[in-house]
Amino acid sequence: MANLSITSLCNRRCSYCFARQWGWTRLPDGTHMAEETFLSALDFLERSGLTQIRLLGGEPTLHPLIERFLDEIRRRGLSALVFSNGLMPNSVLEYLEGRDDGRISLLINAVTLGSSAEESENQRAVLKRLGGKAMLGVNITSPAADLSALLEWTVEFKLAPFIRLGLAHPCHGGDNRHLPPNQYPAVGDRLLEFREKARRQGVSLRYDCGFVPCLFSRSGAETLKELLAEAQFVCSPIPDILPDGSLIPCYPLGRGFQEKKIPAGEGAVEVRARFADRLSAFRGPGIYRECETCPFRLSGICPGGCLAASLKRLRSKKKFLFPVASEI
């Protein structure tokens, strides 16, 4: 897996946005990936053996060459998964409607909490036109997140019967809104209910990275067993390719771990291994104090949650004075 972030331009300002945090890479807002860089990135992904190209942003449908990029992906016999907020130009929507070869699908990030009625209506209109080409996703920032619309819209608009769930992680060194781990159990309670409702409607849940078994602490043994098979509790480098062709392990860990360009002759496996090696020095703690002795962690089932979230526990102190005499 690898992500192509093809633009830093976006028409929303989601409070949790991971991508906006990589303003510290000094990419101006509205930086678009050049075609040459895109082709180079496709070459990299193909030699990595990846056949699904994931396009992200910003809002990728705002890239002026998005249709050309998608045509190139299809021409190479690959498929594309476009991560979008659904608020796309009508020309792009018409392009997507007209492509029925099954090679382009969309993950629409449902803007429910905090969105305007107009945005919500715009999203609904797009989903109605995309139908089975789209699935819904959400990044959870609070236990109060209302997920019911995701299921309603999936059924109403006959979307692909999957809902992707993500936890809003902090960006290392950033200040985006995120879900603090002490709220995970409350989120887990809501997810267990939602999961049951979704199953009854024939909709499966897919879990993004950073979920942990203890988030579902109130589930019974059988449900937990099912979740262990469904959720794949992971935290590992993706990697993400940014509009300027640089690579980062993932958006939350972009700061301080960037590689300047797509390596010639290497694939995603080598890049992932390099990032994993660099990150291994930070992997000791988990998101909770208790991760140190947690049986799920010790058995290798859980890596201790999102690394960026665990690094949020780092304490520092400008003044750390202790008076001593020196006789060195």
């Binding site: 104090r289 665990s310 304490r315 520092s316 008076p323 001593v324 020196s326």
Partner: peptide, 20 residues
């Protein structure tokens, strides 16, 4: 006497039985 302080860019995390 002298006073000591953390070197630059040093942070720490408290675990159940350890400090990293």
């Amino acid at each position: 006497g002298i006073a000591v302080e953390l070197a630059p860019r040093i942070g720490w995390i408290v675990e159940e039985g350890t400090v990293r």
